[in-house]
């Protein structure tokens, strides 16, 4: 029991999860300094069946709130906005063939990986509790 709770604690500290009011999540690994970015389950539900993901290129240096690509459902297109400033270091290739993975597991399916320019910018984002308040309004 003791071991397990320590393990949990470490995990919690090494990955910091934050949200934007525009329904993106960012999971920042404090050790590798790499963040994964995705959209929330609420956003996935609002969009409906996701049929295509448009990516920006790896290497793109972006500012906060810059468009990092777009998600297309049958009916709508929605931009993915950068929660913080940084640089794209990876895109989720699985989504090219199976964009519906986002519908299935939005909170676990990352869309892109990024190097975060300024760690402290993460403090300006919402924690889970504050984000849940926004969507349950």
């Amino acid at each position: 029991m003791y071991m397990r709770s320590i393990f949990k604690l470490r995990q919690a500290f090494s990955v910091l999860t934050k949200y934007t009011k525009d329904h993106e999540w960012i999971k920042y690994d404090t050790q590798s300094k790499i963040a994964k970015i995705g959209i929330t389950d609420y956003a996935q539900k609002e969009l409906g069946d996701i049929v295509h993901v448009d990516f920006q290129k790896v290497g793109l240096v972006f500012k906060t709130h810059q468009s990092l690509g777009a998600i297309e459902s049958v009916k709508v297109a929605a931009d993915i906005y950068a929660p913080v400033a940084g640089e794209i270091v990876g895109i989720n290739e699985d989504l090219k063939d199976s964009p519906n993975l986002i519908n299935e597991k939005a909170e676990e399916t990352w869309i892109l990986q990024a190097k975060v320019q300024n760690e402290s910018e993460l403090d300006t984002l919402l924690d889970k509790q504050s984000y849940d308040k926004i969507i349950n309004k």
Partner: peptide, 10 residues
């Protein structure tokens, strides 16, 4: 992510 595209279109 901005979720108003359908409304905007119409």
């Amino acid at each position: 992510m901005i979720l108003i595209a359908f409304k905007q279109q119409n």
